[in-house]
Design a protein around this nucleic acid. Sequence first.
DNA 1: CGCGTTTCCCAAAGCGGTTTGGATAACGAT
DNA 2: ATCGTTATCCAAACCGCTTTGGGAAACGCG
Lengths: 345, 345
Amino acid sequence: MTLKELAQALGLSPTTVSRALNGFPEVSEETRKKVRAAAEAYGYRPNMRARSLATGRAMAIGHVIPIQSGHEMVNPVFADFIAGAGEVYSGAGYDMLISIVPDDRQQQAYEDFRTKGSVDGIIVHAPRLGDKRIQLINDVGIPFVVHGRASDSGEAYSWVDMNNFRAFERATKLLLDLGHTRIGLVNGLEDMDFAIRRRAGVEAALRAAGLKVNDACFFSGEMTEHYGHRAMTEMLALPEPPTAVLTSSMIPGIGIRRAIRESGREIGRDISVIIHDDDLSYLPNGREDPLFTATRSSVREAGRAAATMLLDIIATGDHDPRHVLLEADLILGRSTGPVRAMATT
Amino acid sequence: MTLKELAQALGLSPTTVSRALNGFPEVSEETRKKVRAAAEAYGYRPNMRARSLATGRAMAIGHVIPIQSGHEMVNPVFADFIAGAGEVYSGAGYDMLISIVPDDRQQQAYEDFRTKGSVDGIIVHAPRLGDKRIQLINDVGIPFVVHGRASDSGEAYSWVDMNNFRAFERATKLLLDLGHTRIGLVNGLEDMDFAIRRRAGVEAALRAAGLKVNDACFFSGEMTEHYGHRAMTEMLALPEPPTAVLTSSMIPGIGIRRAIRESGREIGRDISVIIHDDDLSYLPNGREDPLFTATRSSVREAGRAAATMLLDIIATGDHDPRHVLLEADLILGRSTGPVRAMATT
DNA sequence: CGCGTTTCCCAAAGCGGTTTGGATAACGAT
DNA sequence: ATCGTTATCCAAACCGCTTTGGGAAACGCG
């Protein structure tokens, strides 16, 4: 059923039908009602392609998910982020276009989005150190919002981020307050922006307490269970192993827990662990009885915030950079405790 | 830069330029080269909306991800599945549209996809028992492929699925061969099709061995770590706890491992555990040294298969139902071993 | 040279909407 | 009764591309 057919069936012109449905004032209330009823009855829905060709608005937002060539890893927070964003889009009548591309074809993906006219705006995921994408999209000239920040990008741009620095600084302070002085960090890949900020937060807290940073206890890698296990095992083999460990996600946290248990120690008693919890729906840390002490910030909420921001930028046409910095909650679980005198083997 | 402008700049008609770029034979090689060069130089890219309005093909595939109202859980395999599908799409010049909708607005989502003309085909995720979606989309009349099957849907339709029955039957047989006779199953929600088939596989193997199914050792729930932990803890409290457990995913498997350890037992020695491993990029079970003995089947591969099938259905226009049944590998890890005489507390 | 084929290119008609610029009728005021 | 408004509706242009149906030149052949 097309507009024209609907118009014909009603004995009206396409113009009038279009206006009636889109709420223009040039049409009488009476006919508007008739048109609405007929549209409903015939199940008429405007063809989006035709409409957006005519209006120039695609009514769609593009998400570009980078895949790191080599590791082939999809960011695990991705599913929840777009679930949050998706809520906002569908509420506003927008579609969500997703493009999963290897690192080296990023630029292509952004340009395609714009020149092919398939989206009105873009969400950029997982910015890295030295990320050129932001400059790229700025050049392309299409509204966008970054999930996270690219520390060293000179450009001004809009972003939604979690306060990684503060979250990890606070978590470290908690450990310091519990008496821990040998603290390890099992971080994400350190060319990712969030990992850099988290490390900085830990280091700041340590320095503030007059402690020096022990490089042997700082790890950087892709956040898998095996990685957490390996890092923890290595640390436990040190002459003076850390008594507390922070890690960037629940998944390596599980590996850390396994390594601790395998060494005959007990988590929360012999060794304290704090994870960052993205509050993923399929990997809940637990509400009333959290597995891990954690800094928690819902990545789904971040998705909602980023989508809302982007739609607003598009609607208002106001491209001044905006920022939302989400603070993480510090959740006390069973994986932390005061330092024990004889934690070493 | 539009086609018309490009044509003008070249001193040619839009017709010729369009044909030159789309490889029609009615244009001389010489002009084709000139046109290509100019298009390259000006950075011309056809507007997809206009093109698909003209051709009637949207060059996009829609994925409808259901969110179970109430739990708000996004299926964790989703990210890897669409990563696989995305590869295929981008290779074929297709876009991927994602719609994340609560259960009760599914129908709307499918109809919108078609009537709004935004996609040429649909991938249906996570079919359930008594799922009405398949009939729904068949009625809507748009090519689609289901990831998984809906056991009780009378309709014929195309699907890509893993052989859940056989995978769990084989895994159960492995446990039986190891001498286990008290076997538990920590399954997914049993209104999901895959969970039903897995249970059936386990039951078939048990019956074939002349064993009866113990309902106290069969669990059904949303696959979280906590769920695995709770189920295992319950089983261990039984007068005769199982000596082996199968579970539907790595995540509850981790909870199961935790419960086993908390009870002072050792996984693989006191209690054997087999998980199903979707080979998720962010939750690897390990290649050389797998954490768990597992039935493994890459969900990313399933995504590729489903996308390939759908594109082919669209290209050939041949709507005869097709099926791909992926077999799972049985991977031996360290979580299984022969039954021990005194496994009970 | 005449005539039927090719070869190469173009004008114009869509695709299904929106939007501009009237046209017609009804209305109120003079 | 006349004229300017206002309220409704419509014809036609347009968005940017594809595609149909020629048309003109070049070619092949008797």
